[in-house]
Structure formats: C-alpha cells, structure tokens
Design a binder for these strands. Structure first.
Lengths: 231, 231
DNA sequence: GTCTATATGTTGATAGAC
DNA sequence: GTCTATCAACATATAGAC
C-alpha cells in the first residue's frame, strides 16, 4: 500500500498537496479581487496547476471558492464558540460582560491576522461577493455562532428586544468587516496630522492589539447606548 | 439653433438622455454585482443602447463606472457639508454633540434610501471594488468631507488623539457600509424569534428612521467610550 | 488521477458605414 | 453622434490521451 502510494506520487503530484496549493492561491487572489474579478486560470497558474486539475478536484470555480472560504472561516468560528463556552462555564449562568463577549468574537480573527494570511480579506468577501455564491455558506458557517452570541448578548442586556440586539450586532459586524477589508490603511492618508509624527502614531494605534482593544470598547459602548429618541 | 437640435434629436437620440439611461442602468447592475461581475454589454442592453454608444460617451467601462459612482455620491457629500456648516454656524464655535455630527453624516444617505435608488449599494462598492478603480475617486469625493468631520469630532472630543478619532471614524463608516450593503436583510433570518411576531418586529426595527436612530446612538456611544485597557 | 487539446461562449474596444 | 460589424483575447468546462 505504501509503495503503491509512493509509485503514484512519483508519476503524479500528491493530490492533497495540489488541493492545498489551489486553495492557497485562490485565497490570495480571490481575497484581492473577488470572485468575478478572478479567473480560474489566474488561480491555477499561481498554484502551478491546470484549469482541469482545479475542476477535477473541486468541480467548478464556485465550489473552489466556497471551499476556500470554508477552510479559513470554519476554524475561526470553532474557536469563537470555544471561547464563549469557556466564558459561560466560568460565569456559571451569570450574564457575561459585553467586552468579554466581543473579545471572544473578534479575538480569533485578530489572532489570524498575525499569521499573515489573507483570511481577513477572504472573510470580508463573504459580505461583498454575490449572495447566491455565499449566502447558504454563510448560514452554514455562521448559524450556530450567531445564535449563541445573540443568546449571550440577550442575557447581558435583558431589557433589549432580540431585533434590536440583532440590528446592533450587525453594526458590530460592519466595524469588523470594514477593518478586515483593509480600509484602515486609508485612514492615515485621510487625516493629515503632523507629517513627521504621523507615521509613528499610525503604527502604534493601528497595531493589531490596539485596534482590537478600540473595537471592543467601541462596540460594547455602542450596544449599551439607549436607542435615543428624536433628540 | 433650436431647429438644428430638433433635427438632430429626430435622427439620433438625445445625447444627454442616453448618458443618463446608461448611468441608471450601470448604477443598478454594478451596485448588485460589482465592477468585475457586470459586463458592459449587460449595462448597455439594460439601457437600450449599444456597447459603442457607452464607449463613445464615457470612453471605457472604467470611466462609466466612475461617473456612476460620482453622480450619486457627490450630492450626498455636498449635503453632508451643508448640514455640518449649518450646525457649526448655529453652535458659534462651541463643540457639537456627537449625535448631531453623525446625523449630518448619515442623514443624507438614509434620505436617499427612500428614493428607491441603488445609491446604497453603489456607495458600498466604493469599499469592495478593486482599489485601483476607486481609490483616487474616493480621495476626490471624500477628502474634504473626512477632513471637516474629523475636525468637528476633534472639537467634540478634545482629549483624543487624531489617530484614535480616525480609527473610530472608520468603525462608524464600517457600520454604515455594512448596512448599505444590504446585510440587514440577513438579520431576521439569523435570529429566529417567535415566528409570528418576528415579521412585524423586523419591519418596525428595520425601518429607515429606526435604523438611523440606532446607528447614531451606537456610533456616538462608541466614540465616547474610553480605550479600555487590558480589561 | 492528472494533463493536453479543444469546444463554446463572452468579454471590452474599435474601425468604418450612415 | 450613433450604430453595425468585427476583433483578438479571454472565460469556463469537458472529452479523451496518458
């Protein structure tokens, strides 16, 4: 068996490795230019394979894209749920702090950032690529996560309606997606501070840990804010 | 002169009107599927013209897209600045309330929503289409707006660094873009409330005025929140 | 299981008739 | 100024060789 495999590996490339090279290339290219903006050719060329190989392994361009998204997002959501589990177990039924909830939600994403993967952009594509491509995948990957985190929010803010919590949770997701999409890099350009100190200040404030800290504070406060009437 | 124009209008379609039909069609289609996902043919077909006409009037697909974005966004930014002018004049040098600042920023956008235009999605594309297509346009259209609104924020929150304000302003933009991109429609699906009352509650909370009110409250509170150390 | 060759369609842009 | 006809380049997918 081992030798049969070796013989095959001599004649053909390892299937598993080819698939991963395809996923890596797809991740990089599709993250940058989206589904419609990236040709299957470009992906397979970057992966050092052929179009037929991609279609053989994944069936179609769409399926390759979905596999690319799922590969990165599934483990992040797993870690989100693990963190939430740990928090709830430690709290023993008591409501969690909003800050803790959102650290559990955002932390796994920011942890990946250091790993230099295009995971951020990939995840952001979930929200900008055509719905028919990603909506079922989104429900699949996020169904339980959203339910569990909304439950935690409902316990932390028992006087809010579930609709209101859902709406504001979407605001929080918006903050996250926007930062993941790389729009932070625009920020320094737009805010012409004193040029000399600007770069240093930018590096400091835009460091991952700092951004996460600010985002958690921003979102938690935003959720706590009363609806505010006509003013 | 008038008869010459009439004679031309008889032989050929009115140039101005053709351009607007092209812009309308481009707005609708490009908003839904993005630049790469929309063929020039699809746009011209929807506009009842030909590919050559579009290239004649706009030079290229890229230029048509930029013109489409600019047509909608420029007047919104004009109204934003007018609102801010009015607020600052009324305040006579005193710092503005954060809520007022963001009503000035978000109001013109939500006002357009009622007009049933694809303006939201179009604006959202600014943040998901390839940078080389939109980044110079973004600077052109938003340069002054961002500067003026950041100045107002800096006066309202004088103890914050400009970098921090810029970062959090991006969070606010993220909320806005995410809602514009239509992600609110996902919300009801994800939050399985009591099925019967869910629809009514959703309509209520997701009405434009309600969303705007919640968003302003969310963002203002988020900006006021202190950075929050290690927790 | 993987690749070569190819089928079949669509893309954006333009040259030239009217 | 606008349209018809046409372009080369590119798209995805597949049939069949190895």
């Amino acid at each position: 068996m081992a030798e049969a495999q070796l013989a095959r590996a001599g004649r053909h490339r390892d299937s598993r490795e080819t698939q991963e090279r395809l996923l890596d290339a797809a991740e990089r290219l599709l993250a940058e230019r989206g589904f419609a903006g990236t040709s299957l050719r470009a992906v397979t060329q970057a992966a050092g394979t052929s179009v037929s190989a991609a279609n053989y392994h994944f069936g179609s361009k769409e399926e390759l894209w979905r596999a690319t998204l799922a590969r990165r997002i599934a483990p992040i959501n797993r870690r989100r749920l693990e963190s939430l589990d740990a928090l709830e177990q430690a709290a023993g039924g008591a409501p969690l702090a909003l800050e803790a909830i959102f650290e559990a939600y955002l932390g796994p994403l920011f942890a990946e950032r250091a790993a230099r993967h295009a995971v951020h952009f990939v995840a952001a594509r979930l929200y900008s690529d055509p719905p028919e491509l990603v909506s079922t995948l989104k429900l699949e990957l996020f169904g339980e996560v959203i339910r569990r985190f909304l439950d935690a929010l409902a316990r932390a803010l028992p006087d809010r309606s579930r609709m209101e919590l859902g709406l504001r949770f979407q605001f929080a997701v918006g903050c996250m997606v926007h930062v993941m999409s790389g729009n932070l890099e625009d920020a320094p350009l737009l805010m012409e501070s004193v040029p000399e100190s600007a770069a240093a200040a930018a590096d400091d404030v835009l460091a991952d840990a700092s951004v996460l800290r600010h985002m958690v504070a921003f979102i938690a406060a935003g959720l706590r804010a009363p609806a505010g009437d006509a003013r």
